[in-house]
Design a protein around this nucleic acid. Structure first.
Length: 585
RNA sequence: GCUAGCCUAGCUCAAUGGUAGAGCUCCGCUUUCGUAAAGCGGAGGUUGUGGGUUCGAAUCCCAUGGCUAGCUCCA
């Protein structure tokens, strides 16, 4: 049940061992309370542990409490963990009433030493290691109970999984629970509603389809403006392509054969079948093919904020993270083989620069290689592309990992994982080399020698899906967007109705200098409106009363720092310009 | 898709077989108030939808739509 991963440092290994032992203790408790339960697997995982059981009825929240209490007894008894090495036949005999264990044993490679771990009367097939005795588990908590398929396949029986976590100290456990609560508070589905950023009209429009409300749309516009400006600086051109195209295009591209499960049924138009695009690449290739291309034209870098539609199974949809219609910040680069490396370096540098602008600085690159099945193109081309990616990534100087066989069907890729303010890793950026589509569409350029040569195509997205990236940003910032992304940067708050005229004057001045400002003229007490603006995470509140009106000043309050005192409007405008330090744009 | 839980006013939630309710939001009035919630009143629901059981259903049953969590980080 140990996951067999090589722990990178002893502290992690200790924690893994502790959690793994906690999962044994939990299984023991379950067996005591539900003797008919059959054991499946129970590994330590990143944030804790789980154990899968085959039980007649799903666990209820009350059951978790009972199991926790039973675990307390086992821990209190401080029973030793004992390892025994046994033969395969003894193991099969010992676990003859445990069908899942039996299956695991029979699948262990010949010659593998089989071991069991025992504490008290509880015995489990296990590679180990374990802590010395149950009493060493000082801080643990069971979190949730859910269904989980045996070995993750829906063809298999559904088992009942209990998730729990364990730490070396109560303090660490409490911190972890606090962290879980913090993640919940920052949930983009919650903040999206509170800040009126977006909605998904599940019943009226359909699940997985996003409506961007004015505030959210403003943020998207700001992201898009920034994106376009940066692309121009990096030598890209923009194109727009239609949302539907003839089925034949998708047959040529191979998507109809390899990606159909994610595509929607054809639409009948004048007795011709059209497909709602799940990807932008075939369209971009048509633009390439619209005229002859010279070696001098390359590289071509074409970007599009392309909206695509993909079928996702109902059960995997989740807020803005997983939707059925979304906009990719897509680009396709067409280059000569001698330009491939530089283009890869350029794209990776570009990507990391963009992420830094959004406050991300922790990156990990993963290069995915050819899948064993379901791929197109020659192995030789795959190898060439993979080598170019590795060379490119090395050139940039970021550490990388290789994920064998994890690439999509048309080419190897390099993904960047970014870490957010809550320490969670997200993959947004992807760079995929494609030797396949150029072949399928037979795209060429004329070389210096007048020969027809095949260009190499790169697909890339920096943020990936705007919807998903937006969700990540909402949670990363906890809804408190930096000044350059805040949909409303300042709210003007007159103390009394008598200052409304001056408040509107101030508002107009701010607007004229390009600040996204609003005025809250409601007949509410100042403190009420301050509370509202603070909850809406507006960066600056501009309070104007008699004093300010007389002095022709404004009293500035920052959303976190509080009252900054009175200043001239011009002073405030200058201050905002320097406050764009998060990202100057 | 599957398993479990859930769906009551725009939002967050009460009401466990017997007249659907509160707070916030919204609307109106009063209040003229200086840095995180002033007061009063009003509007708003065929309880997701469609069937069924019952004298009577938000509540029980069936179907359907949707949400949430999970569905190999492998003994």
């Amino acid at each position: 049940m140990s996951n067999g991963k090589v722990a990178t440092n002893p502290a992690n290994r200790d924690l893994e061992t502790l959690r793994h032992s906690a999962s044994h203790i939990m299984a023991d408790a379950v067996k005591r309370l539900f003797p008919q339960a059959k054991l499946a697997i129970g590994p330590a995982i990143e944030e804790g542990f789980y154990y899968d059981f085959d039980v007649p009825a799903p666990f209820l929240p009350e059951d978790l409490k009972k199991i926790e209490d039973e675990m307390a007894k086992i821990i209190k008894s401080n029973t030793k963990f004992e390892r025994t090495e046994i033969s395969r036949s003894d193991a099969l005999k010992m676990f003859k009433d445990e069908p899942y264990k039996t299956e695991l044993i029979s699948e262990l490679p010949a010659g593998e030493q089989i071991s069991i771990y025992k504490h008290g009367n509880f015995v489990d097939l296990c590679r180990g290691p374990h802590i010395a005795s149950t009493g060493q588990v000082k801080a643990y908590k069971l979190l949730t109970a859910t269904g989980a398929y045996w070995r993750g396949s829906e063809k298999n029986k559904m088992l009942q999984r209990i998730y729990g976590t364990a730490f070396e100290s109560k303090q660490q456990l409490d911190d972890h629970i606090k962290h879980i609560e913090e993640v919940k508070k920052r949930d983009h589905r919650l903040l999206g509603k509170e800040l009126d950023l977006y909605s998904i009209q599940y019943e009226d429009a359909g699940p997985g389809l996003v409506f961007w409300h004015p505030k959210g749309a403003m943020i998207r516009k700001l992201i898009e403006d920034f994106w376009r400006a940066e692309h121009l600086k990096h030598g890209y051109e923009f194109i727009y392509s239609p949302h539907i195209a003839r089925l034949g295009l998708w047959k040529t591209s191979g998507h109809w054969d390899f990606y159909r499960e994610n595509m929607y049924s054809p639409i009948d138009i004048d007795e011709q079948e059209y497909i709602l695009k799940p990807m932008n690449c075939p369209g971009h290739i048509l633009v390439y093919k619209s005229r002859g291309r010279s070696y001098r034209d390359l590289p071509l870098r074409w970007a599009e904020l392309g909206t695509v539609y993909r079928y996702e199974r109902s059960g995997v949809l989740a807020g803005l993270f997983r939707v059925r219609g979304f906009t990719q910040d897509d680009a396709h680069l067409f280059c000569r083989p001698d330009q491939l490396r530089d283009e890869i370096i350029g794209v990776i540098n570009f990507g990391t620069a963009i992420f830094k602008a959004f406050g991300f600085s922790d990156f990990k690159i993963v290069i995915s290689t050819r899948p064993k099945e379901k791929y197109v193109g020659t192995i030789e081309n795959w190898d060439r592309a993979t080598e170019a990616l590795k060379a490119g990534v090395e050139q940039v100087g970021l550490p990388y990992e290789i994920a064998e066989g994890e690439a999509v069907f048309y080419g190897p890729k390099a993904d960047i994982h970014i870490k957010d303010s809550l320490g969670r890793a997200w993959q947004c950026f992807t760079l995929q080399v494609d030797f396949n589509l150029p072949e399928r569409f037979d795209i060429v350029y004329t070389s210096q020698e007048g020969k027809q040569e095949r260009p190499i195509m790169l697909h890339r997205a920096l943020m990936g899906s705007l919807e998903r990236f937006f969700a990540i940003l909402i949670e990363h910032y906890g809804g408190a967007f930096p000044l350059w992304l805040a949909p409303v940067q300042a709210v003007v708050l007159p103390v009394l109705e008598t200052q409304h005229k001056y408040a509107v004057e101030v508002l107009e001045t701010l607007k004229k200098s390009g600040i996204r400002a609003e005025a809250d003229l409601r007949n509410e007490r100042l403190s009420n409106r301050i509370r509202f603006a603070t909850n809406q995470k507006v960066p600056y509140m501009i309070v104007v009363g008699d004093k300010e009106e007389t002095d022709k000043t404004i009293a500035v309050r920052e959303r976190v720092k509080g009252d900054l005192g009175a200043m001239k409007i011009e002073e405030f405008i200058t201050k905002l310009a320097t406050d764009y330090t998060d990202f100057k744009y």
